[in-house]
């Protein structure tokens, strides 16, 4: 087990996963996992299938309650939230953590714009005086709904969906649905955005657009990102920090380059013995050199 590198109160760390264990009956999905997500960075969580990545996500976003361990979220304001104690919807509302899903979960029968308005539910609820004032037509609510549409427009622009605003979300192409899901999550004003395989099923062009969008989120909004990804080109391209899981434990943690060259990671991915690692490593560098050439 690695020692946590930063002290928990360090403002540089936004999310601190500490000794988290998750058991389903007899199955240990995550075992004593600790890692940090730093602010204003893109952190990637990678690992072979069944390594427990989505389980980590579900623990962080409150869909599962970890069997043991702590998950601390430090907001910009300095407020610290214990995510392992919070229920799912409060994690978004109070802790400001948003997420997307591996199998896209859009409101397919609502329009693209409506999807983004639903995401601003809590802001609009307060503005409408919990429906009562809004029903009576108070001005505050009308202003708030105009502002909500403006914000939705902003994110539609960023996600390149402005001309599809009035179409049903279910009518969008796969790539556009992925972008919409991210835009929707961003409309909740999160400080940490968790993306579950955002590039899955995208073609190379859509994948590039996605990279651009994710970088823009990190650079322009100050939202930190935690993502699960299988597509190594995306991971290596955009992430600042990579955490590698295998069988529910962390086997490597560092910059993309460090991780790429970690023999344990290569062994995990290729399923080879440690002795053969050097051999494989050579082949890979060879192959990547060729590819870059």
């Amino acid at each position: 087990m690695m020692e946590p590198r930063e002290n928990p109160m360090n403002s540089d760390v936004i999310l601190k996963v500490e000794h988290v264990t998750m058991r389903f009956g007899g199955l240990v999905a995550i075992n004593d996992l600790s890692f940090d997500v730093r602010r204003n960075e893109i952190t990637a969580l990678i690992g072979p299938n069944g390594a427990g990545k989505t389980t980590v996500f579900n623990c962080v976003t409150g869909f599962y309650r970890p069997t043991m361990g702590r998950i601390l979220m430090t907001q910009k304001s300095g407020k610290v939230c214990h995510l392992e104690r919070m229920t799912d919807f409060t994690i978004n509302r109070e802790a400001k953590v948003a997420r997307t899903f591996q199998n896209i979960r859009l409101f397919t029968g609502l329009t693209v714009l409506e999807n983004l308005l639903v995401a601003q539910h809590n802001t609009l609820m307060r503005a409408s005086g919990y429906t009562v004032l809004g029903l009576l037509g108070f001005k505050g609510y009308r202003n708030a709904s105009v502002a909500a549409i403006e914000k939705a427009k902003l994110w539609l622009e960023r996600a390149d969906l402005l001309d599809r605003a009035d179409d049903p979300a279910g009518d969008l192409s796969y790539g556009a649905q992925r972008r919409l899901e991210i835009a929707r999550a961003m409309c909740t004003d999160p400080e940490l955005l968790c993306l579950d395989e955002p590039a899955a099923g995208l073609n190379p062009r859509e994948s590039l657009e996605l990279n651009k969008l994710l970088r823009a989120i990190r650079d322009d909004t100050g939202t930190s990102l935690l993502l699960i990804e299988h597509d190594m080109s995306v991971v290596m391209e955009i992430s600042d920090h990579v955490v590698v899981l295998e069988y529910g434990t962390k086997i490597s943690d560092g910059t993309p380059d460090e991780v790429k060259n970690d023999p344990k990671v290569i062994a995990a991915y290729l399923g080879v013995d440690d002795e053969e690692v050097d051999e494989v490593l050579d082949e890979i560098t060879h192959a990547t050199d060729e590819a870059q050439a």
């Binding site: 948003a98 409101f107 609502l110 308005l117 601003q120």
Partner: peptide, 23 residues
Amino acid sequence: MPIGRAWEALREDEIACRSLGIN
């Protein structure tokens, strides 16, 4: 209004609703 939209969103996908901070 937000409450009505939340109703319809609930019909479409409850889990997504929870991930967006809707009680």
